[in-house]
Design a protein around this nucleic acid. Structure first.
Lengths: 218, 218
DNA sequence: TAGATTGTTAATCGATTAACAATC
DNA sequence: TAGATTGTTAATCGATTAACAATC
């Protein structure tokens, strides 16, 4: 086990491993090799072994990885072995979708507070959570020991919400708004805006193999 | 202008440029330098210049880039200068959110058909589109000349939907389900699952600067 | 002309992959 | 023991960044 710096790319793959391992576990598969994992996840087996080796020796030579043990280990690494409370700002369609989604609950992430600026939204219920006014944000975040915030407001309001989050002591933000937020270095931002993924799809239509863009000839 | 292979990383940044340039255009800013762009988007100015230079010479030395001209050029590169019809399968909360969202419309992407397997959803209206049964998918995709599909169904059904899409001739898929889809090489998949982004946030909590994971000492 | 900023080459940095000894 | 598969080092590959001549 080395004390190297672990790159973001590695950390980003851990939840992907976790998700597929959970699937295997559900199907009562006991053991898995990096070969198997690589094939199912479209990744190089050497990369998977290397990723895991940053954190310890979790496999057995000649055998592979014990599925359940590896799940436990990855959950520890990601700090998902403790419940993490999450706040969400923006009770629009997307906010609703995220609250009703409950994939994260099994991963110990739980949206426990929802806020919105619009009086028409405040007081309504989403999945047993009452939408609160922005004025309550600071207090709730302290009371509920919330460290992660999700932003699902329109782009124009997103920076403002981020500022509120930072002031309230939030340490990680999942941002769905299509812009780059400015926050202090100690706050971590992950962008979940899908418009870039959608728009960049267009580039790859039709011209697979060639370059998509045909410049004017000089 | 060179005929190099353009990496995915480059293409992924184009929509980000586009989005900020549109912002500038709205504010009637005429010209922008790679310096400015880099600062606002948290990117290296050299990288931005290099990205753009793959596709042509869009700037003026000593001056910068004309905002409106660059917008036009990037839209051409991404093939957003023509309207692209999009199909969506999965009329749940997330599907609803995406249909009501209309950011893409200004970018010439439009969801024009929605499908769901559940009888309780079929026939309902989302944003003026009637939810159709899966049986109609093939025909609609042909009739409406749809080349991009969005998957917002639960993970267990996602591969099945992807197969339908492929058979119907879809060339690009935006997948929100948390799994790796298997499709022929000529079909492009972009994953928009945000659970990986959310779960990996946990890793970075608290221990900024250090490594988040504390292994047992041997 | 002087200052600014591009387009592009060269240098650096980091991430992925191949290869293999160790070992179950 | 023979076959399989890990953990890890070395080789490769690709992406980012620095630097600068060209030029507006």
């Amino acid at each position: 086990m080395k004390q190297e710096k672990i790159s973001e790319a590695v950390v980003r793959r851990l939840p992907i491993y976790l998700q597929f391992l959970s699937e295997l576990n559900k199907r009562e598969v006991q053991t898995v090799s990096s070969q198997d994992l690589g094939q199912k996840l479209d990744l190089n087996p050497a990369q998977i072994r290397k990723d895991l080796a940053y954190f310890g020796e979790f496999g057995r030579k000649g055998v592979g990885y014990d599925v359940f043990y590896l799940i436990e280990k990855i959950r520890q690494i990601l700090k998902l072995d403790q419940t993490l409370n999450v706040a969400l700002v923006g009770a629009g369609n997307l906010g609703h979708a995220l609250c009703n989604y409950n994939t994260y609950i099994k991963d110990n992430m739980k949206i426990v507070a929802v806020f919105d600026a619009s009086p028409s939204k405040i007081g309504t219920q989403i999945n047993n959570i009452t939408v609160s006014p922005m004025a309550d944000l600071n207090q709730s975040i302290t009371d509920l020991n919330i460290r992660i915030g999700i932003i699902t407001v329109p782009a124009v309001e997103a920076q403002n919400v981020a500022n509120h989050f930072v002031e309230a002591g939030i340490k990680g933000i999942l941002n769905f708004a299509p812009l780059i937020l400015k926050v202090p270095d100690e706050v971590r931002i992950h962008n979940a805006d899908f418009t870039t993924a959608l728009l960049s799809l267009a580039y790859y239509l039709d011209y697979e193999g060639e370059n998509g863009y045909e410049p004017a000839l000089d």
